[in-house]
Nucleic acid binder design. Structure first.
Length: 202
DNA sequence: GGCCAGGACACCA
DNA sequence: TGGTGTCATGGC
């Protein structure tokens, strides 16, 4: 009985957010590679600033794995400067590009077509990709039904008393996936709506 | 002038 | 395993 109530609460919360904000159309990008680089650049950074760094890469013609590998650390860091922590992010973007070349011959589709468990494990082994960024990539670039948990999700659902802030990332993810249909379109919209709602409250 | 954004990692106890 | 420091731009 309690489980049914909880299940309804997760769906009702989604419906309320959707009614208020409408579709969010995530992830804004022209390619899977752009989604992945964007996911790294927006770590702990507003999308507005991450987008500026992404535009620097695009407008200068460097938004591809082999072009990124051709840049020195300083050159890449300068392009990524608006995204905050630009030295760290230059290393992360460089490491992902190297991995894609060494492991998958720059074939992003080949990489993303692996099964969810294998791909998640591989992503987590790359420097700069943690659980949230890995799940962003799984959901938005690889189109896998994986729920993305971020700090907003933890705060909002703890406040609704549907979870506890002390739960781990995977606890949260399992909680959502247990109480929601296994639907990638739903997961896509839900995470985007949570971010939209969090920004609206500030 | 201070705070905080669509986190991850290194280091320590 | 959990807590804390570090990274270091730009808008409000």
């Amino acid at each position: 009985m309690a489980s049914i109530i909880k299940k309804n609460s997760f769906i009702q919360t989604y419906n309320r957010l959707y009614e208020r904000y409408g579709p969010q159309n995530w992830w804004p990008a022209d390619s899977a590679f752009e989604i992945i680089i964007g996911a790294i650049l927006t770590q702990s950074t507003s999308w507005v600033n991450a987008k500026k760094a992404l535009e620097n890469l695009k407008s200068s013609g460097y938004l591809s794995p082999h072009k990124i590998r051709s840049l020195s650390h300083i050159e890449l860091a300068n392009l990524l400067r608006p995204s905050q922590y630009f030295n760290s992010k230059a290393k992360k973007v460089q490491e992902f590009s190297k991995h894609l070349g060494a492991r998958h011959e720059n074939d992003i589709d080949k990489m993303l077509s692996q099964d969810t468990t294998t791909l998640r494990k591989e992503l987590l082994s790359i420097y700069g990709i943690g659980q949230e960024t890995a799940d962003d990539i799984l959901l938005y670039a690889a189109q896998k039904p994986v729920f993305v948990v971020d700090s907003y999700t933890r705060r909002i659902f703890a406040r609704l008393r549907l979870s506890s802030l002390s739960q781990t990332y995977l606890d949260y993810q399992q909680l959502f996936q247990k109480h929601l249909p296994n639907d990638k379109a739903l997961y896509n919209e839900y995470h985007a709506l949570i971010v939209r709602h969090a920004k609206n409250r500030m």
